[in-house]
């Protein structure tokens, strides 16, 4: 388990190092995710040597968001002053993003698979 933890942490550490030296505006955790994907893809590490800690982290991901969620209590005053526009914007916009993204993807996928079928014929 320690070795698995080390692999996760070293991906994160490389992410931090990259952010520090290049000052790119990408979170270190996302760089770490891509590094882990690359390391698995190029067989630098085996899936087996990371599987059980990854399962633990991924299965409980929702739970780890609770403390940042509780932090909303610090901004109650600010939010309650403009509650209606904030809530409407958050709910409305999130709804629209879900609809537009999923519809676009679904339509493009259908077009693509039709083309592939035609190509095969």
């Amino acid at each position: 388990m320690i070795r698995q933890l080390f692999i996760i942490l070293i991906c994160l550490a490389f992410g931090e190092i990259i952010v520090y030296f290049t000052s790119v505006k990408i979170p270190s955790s996302i760089i770490g995710m891509l590094l882990l994907t690359a390391a698995l893809h190029f067989k630098v590490i085996k899936l087996k040597s990371i599987q059980s800690i990854a399962d633990f982290l991924l299965d409980n991901m929702v739970f780890f968001f609770i403390p940042p969620g509780v932090a909303i209590m610090c901004y109650f005053d600010l939010i309650s002053k403009e509650l209606l526009p904030i809530l409407a914007s958050i709910i409305g916009s999130t709804f629209l993003v879900l609809v537009s993204t999923s519809f676009t993807h679904q339509v493009l996928r259908k077009i693509r698979s039709k083309k592939l079928k035609k190509g095969k014929k």
Binding site: I8, L9, L57, N60, I66, P67
Partner: peptide, 28 residues
């Protein structure tokens, strides 16, 4: 919240590692 954060930070610690762990399904 600052007092709560003294406890919450132990849970929040796992947030970044769990995002790194998304590399596994991404690879698959």
């Amino acid at each position: 919240y600052d007092t709560y954060h003294e406890a919450g930070k132990y849970i929040e610690f796992f947030l970044k590692p769990s995002i790194v762990a998304l590399g596994v399904p991404l690879y698959l």
